[in-house]
Design a binder for these strands. Structure first.
Lengths: 159, 159
DNA sequence: TATTGTTATACTCTATAACTATA
DNA sequence: TATAGTTATAGAGTATAACAATA
């Protein structure tokens, strides 16, 4: 036997992620439509994603999903789209003043949700888990970008 | 600033879980309908969940979802439902011979997917992350059971 | 009265393809 | 020809409520 843990990796990830979605859904109730909208808001607040495609990649979502999510945030007056002068195909997404306030409040609530979610772990384990997840997710994101480039390269070779 | 990591916990969990689903979907292609069906198959193979409700709790799913998932697995001849003699409301779910073979093959493929998914981590970090996720998920599952009991107790007090 | 499982239903999530406009 | 974004659509995921059988 080689198994160290009881659960499949996918089972643990799924259980935690679904619990996260359920609890964030309660935490943002009345302020945003869905938990995904909070994640988008948080990425926009981070300020290191230049356009919708970058936000989608960061969250592991399809870019078609971003359109509706940003539509919703914009309708609520929390973000604004503006054309990128350097590339007129691209749209920058930035928090409005109201969005900044709302994000600060929601981030406070979600922090509590996250602590509760990892309540089975000690504080140092909590930090350890977040760091490992962060690095693993970053590697996945990078691999997806590489794959996209590889596909683009293949197509170029064929062309 | 108090943030240690770049991403929200939910963002990392979401990115990894969606990537897991995408890759498992490819790995099981043609054998099972969806990645969730694999997770159910794996729990059944584990043998420590007595009925559908237990499987649902283990996976953090609603019990109504289990009906359809088990229907599908049964239609493919991979699991069998049988009434529990001790409680005739309850249905045991067990692998068929064919289900045992299929599960073994799929588990092999999913193991490769999982290693690839955590490719950004060292082997010891991989193990560490799985153990932490496992414990955090177990705590969430336990808390959900406790909450259900608490709600039941509340209702009993009110009754 | 509560629980297991089922069915029906509705809403959300996700991905694909087709389209516009830019590059 | 490729990319950013949009739209339409369909399939999968998820949760709620109502129900039957059983405890």
């Amino acid at each position: 036997m080689s198994s160290v843990t009881e659960r499949d990796l996918g089972s643990s990830l799924g259980t935690l992620f679904r619990a996260y979605l359920r609890e964030v859904d309660l935490a943002i109730s009345g302020t945003l439509g869905t938990p995904r909208a909070y994640l988008v808001l948080a990425v926009v607040a981070g300020g290191d994603c230049a356009n919708q495609a970058a936000i989608a990649t960061r969250l592991g979502l399809d870019r078609t999903a971003l359109t509706h999510l940003v539509d919703d945030l914009e309708a609520r007056g929390l973000v604004e789209r503006s054309p990128d002068p350097a590339d007129r195909r691209s749209r920058r997404v930035a928090l409005t003043e109201r969005g900044t306030r709302i994000h600060a409040e929601l981030a406070r609530r979600v922090t509590l949700v996250e602590r509760r979610l990892l309540g089975g772990l000690s504080p140092s384990e909590d930090t350890e888990l977040r760091q490992l997840l962060d690095r693993a997710a970053m590697a996945v994101e990078q691999r997806r970008l590489d794959d996209a480039c590889a596909i683009a390269d293949d197509l170029e070779v064929l062309a």
